[in-house]
Design a protein around this nucleic acid. Sequence first.
DNA 1: ATAAGGTCTGTACTATACTACAGAGTCAAG
DNA 2: CTTGACTCTGTAGTATAGTACAGACCTTAT
Lengths: 134, 134
Amino acid sequence: MESLTIGKVARLAEVGVETIRFYEREGLIDEPKRRESGYREYPHETIQRLRFVRRAKDLGFTLKEIKELLDLRLEPGNACEHVRERAEAKIHDIETKVRTLQRMRKALTKLTMTCRGKRPVSECPILEAMEGDE
Amino acid sequence: MESLTIGKVARLAEVGVETIRFYEREGLIDEPKRRESGYREYPHETIQRLRFVRRAKDLGFTLKEIKELLDLRLEPGNACEHVRERAEAKIHDIETKVRTLQRMRKALTKLTMTCRGKRPVSECPILEAMEGDE
DNA sequence: ATAAGGTCTGTACTATACTACAGAGTCAAG
DNA sequence: CTTGACTCTGTAGTATAGTACAGACCTTAT
């Protein structure tokens, strides 16, 4: 069993070493155990965790929100009602994001159609497809 | 026909006045015409445009990317091939975002199920559902 | 055993996307 | 025709999310 130093984790998760230390300070990943030398030793799951953070970020979640998402699973069983409420709120956020993305995709597809038809791209289908849904 | 000053546009689009001037500097909205006094006078479309920016931002697009999206519609008809390529790349990005969001939603739904069953929330279904898809 | 490269803490700097003035001029309701 | 709200330019400050050292210590391959 090879030991996972911060550099290896960074390479595997495709983030920077400094970023990992930054996430540790921000509470997005647990403080790992240390060697006698002080070197951090990571469990394998950390890689998944870091990838989760990166992806969630790409989807427009802030680190604060990502922390909230991750913390959902840590709640004690007796706060179950509370956990479910928050999870359902996040699901709602996600569904709104998906709908908006789908409208954007539709608008862009329309744009490529217009394009394919060799007609000039005069009117913008992007903005028009973004109306409504507040 | 009432004139749309920056403050009115800001209220209608639900953004700050300073944000509008910032977006103008960054080229995300066109420079509007001015009164003799120097006051900006906006056309109605600006409101949709600002809403588009706000939403795209919530979906994890940077202002730079949003500008690219908006600029797609301005390309001259003869650069059609080029426009289509870029639009298709954006469609691909969007589809990836949608898939990731759907996996997150699935994971969260699973979490709420676990919750509803009154069992303790011990193992995290969120991270596990986020694997694969690079 | 030594040199190259990895890691440590701590602090400082950067990019992005605003946000907040200051000081001066403009508008419009009473 | 004033007065309070709005707008102007320009510059400075903030929050978020990293990124980059410096100076010192650790590891490992030769």
